[in-house]
């Protein structure tokens, strides 16, 4: 149908972003294609190297799913920050990713974990890296006739730890700035893998590669890791947006604080996960 109607049609998922836009007459389509009855688009599946989550899986389902909690804990942590429970009961992972709000949580998590998106059209199915999928604010590389079918979130090897931090005006508001962080260690407690993705800083989620590199080789806890420094490095040179809720300089300064807090928490959890691993 997307191929048939082109720009005149839009898929309707949870409707938590699309319907307000229609109500405010910011967008109008001749056809809405309701995805809500497509059972094959829902569900969390374990695929060996990670999780495959159907596009129509509700945010609330993801937040409560035991597989998500154990195999992609960062996704579960981020979920509690999405709106209010009423929103999460309707909103979907596919909608969140496709909508690509610059302050949304899931795109940052997808970027941090290196998720892949399964995208389908009458022309066939392709797998896209999160890094290639997000192009900017509300912009993705999805073609007009394509649908997000599922997102694949890889599971990180233990010992690893994750943290999601954000600051918002109120409980449930879109973040002013936030960070999704993953830290993987070797058995000696040295960081061997690091991922930092920020939301609210650029149009698309921003991976802070310099800061990630600086983390590698540090002791996760009790050593040479200077979180504040990592935070500053993560935001160095960035030009975050300016809006009614916060200035660019706020986002830059507080973004660094948020990254520092998330890095500290993720590193602590990585160490905890290695201890639990020993106990077993």
């Amino acid at each position: 149908m997307l191929a048939e109607y082109g720009d005149e049609a839009k898929p309707l998922a949870g409707g938590q972003s699309l319907v307000p836009m229609l109500a405010m007459r910011l967008a109008r389509f001749d056809h809405l294609i309701d995805l809500n009855n497509l059972g094959e688009l829902t569900g969390v599946e374990h695929t060996g190297d990670g999780l495959r989550i159907g596009a129509m899986t509700r945010q609330a389902t993801i937040g409560a799913d035991p597989l998500v909690a154990s195999h992609a804990p960062l996704l579960a942590m981020a979920t509690t920050h999405i709106g209010h429970f009423q929103i999460r009961n309707r909103g979907t992972v596919g909608g969140s990713l496709a909508h690509a709000d610059p302050a949304a949580e899931y795109p940052a998590v997808a970027a941090a974990l290196g998720a892949k998106l399964e995208v389908a059209s009458v022309r066939g199915t392709r797998l896209m890296e999160a890094a290639d999928f997000f192009e900017g604010a509300f912009a993705t590389s999805l073609d007009g006739d394509e649908l997000v079918v599922a997102a694949r979130f890889p599971t990180w090897d233990d010992p690893s730890g994750f943290a999601f931090e954000e600051v918002a005006r109120r409980e449930g508001d879109f973040a002013l700035v936030g960070a999704a962080v993953g830290v993987g260690m070797d058995t000696a407690g040295i960081i061997r893998r690091a991922s930092i993705a920020m939301l609210g800083v650029g149009g698309a989620p921003v991976r802070c590669t310099e800061a990630e590199t600086a983390l590698l080789g540090c002791m996760a806890v009790g050593g040479d890791l200077d979180e504040a420094d990592i935070g500053r490095l993560a935001l160095a040179g960035s030009e975050p947006t300016d809006d009614i809720h916060a200035s660019s300089s706020y986002r830059r300064r507080v973004g660094a604080v948020i990254v520092a807090r998330a890095v500290a928490a993720a590193a602590r959890r990585a160490v905890e996960s290695s201890r639990e691993g020993c106990d077993v």
Partner: peptide, 11 residues
């Protein structure tokens, strides 16, 4: 006194 106001005063 938004977070922004307070942070810019601190800065």
């Amino acid at each position: 006194l938004t977070p922004d106001t307070i942070i810019s005063a601190i800065a």
